[in-house]
Simulated assay, not measured.
Amino acid sequence: MSERRPMAEQKPINPWVKTGLELGPVLGFFIVYMRIKDEVYPILGQDYSGFIVATVGFIPILLLSIAILWKLTGKLSRMQIMTAVLVIVFGGLTVIFNDEAFFKIKTTIVYGMFAAILGVGLLRGQSYLAFVMEDLMPIAQEGWMLLTKRLAAMFAAMAGANEIVWRTMSTEFWVKFETFALPAALFAFFIAQAKMLERYSLEKKGPEA
């Protein structure tokens, strides 16, 4: 049996507020981009596309939403911290070099890193996913290992899909793909795991013990 590790206490938060803070910056980026996608902005002697300008606005909004989540819950996940760092780095490179590719490839790196981290744990015979979510979903170790394998493969597929889309499609298509298709695919993935999670659930076995 896996040994449960004490986790930092997390304050309760309204799920609608949490969802709004997590999805708000992404939807905001989408709305701003769609409004200014055809515009060109001359700044300090250099022309910036609407995509670059929307990226500049996205970075502080995302950091603000993460700061609010931290204030409300008293905790930030490693994924949130890593995502924030990558957004700052690649968003900054996008602006500095006036090149949309940096921000687009950020998504490939995020999902690729998630896949790699989970994969390293699997090679060590561990589910790093369980370390993060064990208290939220009490399932048997076999279930965690299976879910981790599937999620690692899903993240790898999403990284590959993003790489193909941003290199072969228009910026507008990529923005829609990033905003709607990838989150929808991840949501559908977890819905598809419902039967497996029920099979390995520890809660239903509790009364029989």
Rank of each mutant, 00 (worst) to 15 (best):
M82N: 08
V89P: 13
A192E: 09
F190K: 10
R4W: 07
K176M: 14
G206H: 13
I117C: 03
K205V: 11
A161F: 05
R35M: 14
P25M: 01
G119D: 08
K71S: 12
G20W: 00
T179I: 04
E163C: 10
A152C: 05
M7F: 14
E3P: 06
F29L: 11
A159L: 01
E208Y: 14
S170D: 09
G91S: 06
M34I: 10
A192I: 00
T94F: 03
M154A: 09
F29C: 01
V95W: 04
W70F: 15
I96A: 15
E172M: 12
P25L: 01
P207N: 14
M79C: 11
L151T: 01
A152F: 05
A67E: 10
Y33T: 00
G91P: 03
G50L: 06
E198W: 12
M79V: 15
K104N: 06
E142V: 06
G160R: 09
P6L: 08
L72T: 04
K104P: 00
R4V: 13
T171C: 10
P60G: 06
N98I: 05
Y33G: 02
R4S: 14
A152N: 00
A192M: 09
Q126G: 04
V89F: 05
T73S: 10
F90I: 01
M196F: 01
W16Q: 12
I52M: 06
A54L: 07
L122W: 07
E142C: 09
F97W: 15
P15H: 09
